[in-house]
Design a protein around this nucleic acid. Structure first.
Length: 272
DNA sequence: ATGACGTACCGCGTACGA
């Protein structure tokens, strides 16, 4: 059996718990990383996920906003979360697991959205986003950042031309501005050296989105999406990835979907 | 710029998302 890792910005896990359970039943990812759970650790539906076959959980929630949770069929150890920019919000949780290719540290990120105005001088939210990315770069380049890692989540950046519906139209829109896309590209190649696993399997010449605005009258018809959700890994892990999939249909599964859809990467079965 | 929306909260409007 292959092993798969999924990420999904669920925009309230309590509101959309039935939808997540349906997804787990149908796709059976070994690990699911959720963002914007919008609840405290106590409010997280831990028992429902355990009953669904995901008893191993690393939850870093907070009241009302943000919050990340990783649920897993595989045992998790060394659960921890990091603070960025000295802001005590819940945007990261990590854990180590074994999936047949040696120890892997799995990081779940919810990178700040950045507000409306793409100018760090006048917009503190955009400043926070750039600061967060800067600290991430420092962390990944640190000699102490060793071993194999997989990072996934809502990065809130659509890095390349075919990651958005209109490259020129979005150059001044937060999520696709040059300062953001160049910073993310630098993060990808610097430090330990990452592979964008989704683009390894679905090449850059194809339009690919994981998010469609709620404000569009007909998301499917206008199809003005962005690829904001990502799964990257270090090289040795990337070598055993076998495929990637974005579950576009999930945007229309229910009358009240998340504005993001699940992203999945599959890996080779454990070596025997 | 698409944006005619959606979520949480002790709420009856406001903050936040992207």
């Amino acid at each position: 059996m292959s092993v798969s890792f999924a990420t999904w910005n669920i925009n309230s896990v309590r509101l959309r718990l039935p939808m997540v359970l349906d997804f787990l039943e149908k796709y059976q990812p070994d690990v699911l990383m959720l963002q914007e759970i919008k609840c405290t650790n106590d409010q997280f539906p831990a028992a429902a996920f355990a009953k669904a076959g995901y008893p191993h959980q690393a939850v870093h929630g907070q009241k009302s906003y943000h919050g990340v949770a990783t649920i897993s069929k595989l045992p998790l150890r060394d659960v921890s979360s990091r603070m960025f920019c000295e802001v005590p919000d819940s945007r990261h949780v990590s854990a180590q697991l074994d999936f047949g290719h040696g120890p892997l540290t799995v990081h779940n990120f919810y990178i700040p959205a950045g507000g409306d105005e793409p100018d760090p001088e006048i917009n503190p939210k955009f400043r926070h986003k750039l600061g967060f990315l800067s600290e991430l770069g420092d962390w990944f380049a640190d000699p102490a950042f060793v071993g194999e890692h997989l990072i996934a989540g809502d990065f809130n950046i659509a890095p390349h031309a075919n990651d958005v519906w209109g490259h020129k139209q979005l150059l001044k829109v937060v999520s696709h501005t040059p300062i953001e896309t160049q910073t993310l590209d630098a993060l990808l190649v610097n430090g330990c050296g990452w592979t964008d696993l989704v683009r390894k399997h679905i090449p850059h010449d194809q339009k690919l989105y994981s998010w469609w605005s709620y404000r569009s009258a007909d998301w499917q018809a206008s199809d003005r999406g962005r690829r904001l959700d990502h799964i990257w890994s270090t090289r040795n892990i990337a070598e055993v990835s076998q495929g990637a999939e974005i579950i576009r249909d999930a945007r229309g599964w229910t009358a009240k979907p998340s504005d993001h859809v699940p992203v999945i990467v599959r890996f080779a079965p454990a070596a025997t």
